[in-house]
């Protein structure tokens, strides 16, 4: 076992003197800047650098802490509980056999999450739209939507398996249940967010219900819809992993893998899977943020974080 990693990690001094590290994070810094007009060209790399340094410093500190735990706090015979970072890198990320298995499982879970999210979006949009059109429907559906939100997902996972089997269908249903509420609520809130003056304008010019919905309520709802989508997308990924953890049939996803690695005490692979699952969540969150920027960034003052 080597003591000091030969793999270079970016230390704090690395980020200061190394301009090459700035472009990597400029995208992220971009998203942090408020929507209106690009700042004057000269200040841009500097802003990016300023945005990049704090997380890099914190990240390096955390990796340092990780080393301290692995080598100082844990005695050698208990070191398997938290292998040092370069070990995880070697046996998880750089061992193609293990890594490709993780990626395949992750891909399966991603597909489940996306299918579930897609169905939740369709149901959510539909429900929110009819709720926005009839107060009665809103009153009828609202308590159930809130109840849906309150269900502890772990409590009903066994029931879902019992009813729908232990395959892909059950996994997708977990995703739908967990991601539906924010879509309904945000879409409904968005549809109701058009100002009274704008509604008056449409009333004044004899717009019918469909025109009002199409030209006023739907576009007005978009910012809230995207806020809901980002939350739901993250939840759907969690749903896919939780569902997969419990349902063993069909194509195994990352949940099954996590369970197997944990029971076999494969610390490095387990950590790799956890890191990759988190990465998936982050990628999904970013992707929706990016779509949001693409669709409404031109007109909406969005504060896109992350």
């Amino acid at each position: 076992m080597t003591t000091i990693p030969d793999v270079t990690r970016p230390g704090p001094e690395d980020t200061d003197g190394h301009p090459g590290s700035a472009p990597d994070v400029s995208l992220e810094a971009d998203a942090l800047v408020h929507a209106p007009g690009p700042p004057p060209g000269a200040s841009r790399p500097r802003t990016a650098l300023r945005a990049a340094v704090p997380p890099l410093v914190l990240g390096s500190a955390l990796i340092g802490l990780w080393y301290v735990i692995s080598y100082v706090i844990l005695e050698p015979h208990r070191r398997f509980l938290l292998q040092p970072p370069h070990q995880v890198l070697d046996n998880g990320f750089l061992d193609w056999d293990a890594y490709s298995r993780i990626l395949r499982a992750l891909w399966n879970s991603t597909q489940v999450a996306l299918i579930g999210l897609g169905i939740a979006i369709s149901i959510g949009f539909f429900l929110a739209t009819i709720m926005s059109q009839a107060k009665m429907v809103e009153r009828a559906v609202f308590p159930f939507a809130v109840t849906l939100q309150a269900i502890p997902i772990l409590a009903i996972v066994p029931m879902i398996g019992f009813w729908f089997g232990y395959g892909t269908t059950a996994r997708v249903i977990v995703c739908i249940i967990i991601s539906l509420f924010p879509i309904i609520m945000n879409t409904l809130f968005g549809l109701q967010s058009a100002e009274r003056g704008m509604h008056d304008l449409f009333t004044l010019h004899h717009a019918n219900r469909l025109t009002r919905l199409r030209k006023l309520m739907f576009p007005a709802a978009l910012p809230a819809v995207f806020a809901g989508l980002r939350i739901s997308a993250g939840l759907s990924v969690i749903g896919a992993i939780v569902g997969d953890f419990f349902f063993g049939q069909g194509e195994a996803g990352i949940g099954q893998l996590l369970r197997r690695y944990a029971s076999q005490l494969d610390g490095e692979e387990l950590l790799t899977s956890v890191i990759m699952s988190s990465a998936l969540g982050v990628v999904v969150f970013w992707t929706f943020g990016w779509i949001q920027k693409l669709v409404i960034g031109k007109w909406h003052e969005t504060e896109v974080l992350g």
């Binding site: 003056g197 704008m198 008056d200 304008l201 010019h205 025109t211 030209k215 007109w299 909406h300």
Partner: peptide, 24 residues
């Protein structure tokens, strides 16, 4: 009818806003 605030639709450009009533 011109309201106290402009009540422009923020997702429409100036031209698209100006065309709204003709559209309706």
């Amino acid at each position: 009818y011109v309201f106290q605030d402009a009540t422009l639709l923020p997702w429409r450009t100036v031209r698209q806003n100006v065309e709204l009533l003709a559209e309706l």
